[in-house]
Amino acid sequence: MSKFMVIGERIHCISPAIRQAFADRNPEPILLRAKEQLDAGADYLDLNIGPAEKGGEELMQWGVKLLQENFDNVPIALDTANMKAIEAGIQVYNRSKGKPIVNSADAGDRIEYVDLAAANDAMVIALCSKEGVPGSNDERIAYCSELLERGMERGMEPTDLLFDPLFIVIKGMQDQLGDVLEAIQMITDMGLLTTGGLSNVSNGAPKHIRPLLDSATVAMAMQCGFSSAIVNPCDKRLMETIVACDIIKNNILYADSVLEF
């Protein structure tokens, strides 16, 4: 098994500082957050420019070039509801450190994002849902199969689709978290890769509780085969848990200084 892949979520237009930086084309706040995340061990950076209905193409190209030029062609997940912006971003994307990831497709309105990834030799995050959170694992697996078929019909390698089982929030839907873990195991058993927005799990919980819930979830999910996640890499507890789990799963070789490298 290869090492768990960490996609850093902190360049997101929901943050006022980042939204403003996008609007002003101000590199500083974006570069700062990129550096923080890479120093903390992120493998990919998510670049969320929001809906970006106006000027999205130019903004995505600006963001991709900014990050790759400053951070040795860091691989990026291109994250927006504007498909044209994703395509424009891929046009200027340097693949030397990894394929671009299209974030994201689902089995409903956003199924064409799979086509977009296939046409551009990209990976894609494929949400196992149609509308909202799936009600059962039968649904999750049906959507997973639908998305897989769509990608393969268009020539994609199955491992270029990262299936997201949709983590549910513990506060309110605690009883369904077991299903999510089971879904990860089922998707893994099909020889496929998984990902997900892990911090959903602890949404609404107090700040000091969130790292605990997130890191326990990632550990349990990794035991089920979970292969990547969209997370806040600056959460030290979470990142240390991922390293420890990678060692226990024999994904990386142990050394006494493993946390320092």
Partner: peptide, 14 residues
């Protein structure tokens, strides 16, 4: 010793 091999490389790099 594989773990030591990695460890020494990390120490030298640091």
């Amino acid at each position: 010793d594989i773990n030591l091999a990695k460890q020494l490389n990390i120490l030298l790099t640091q």
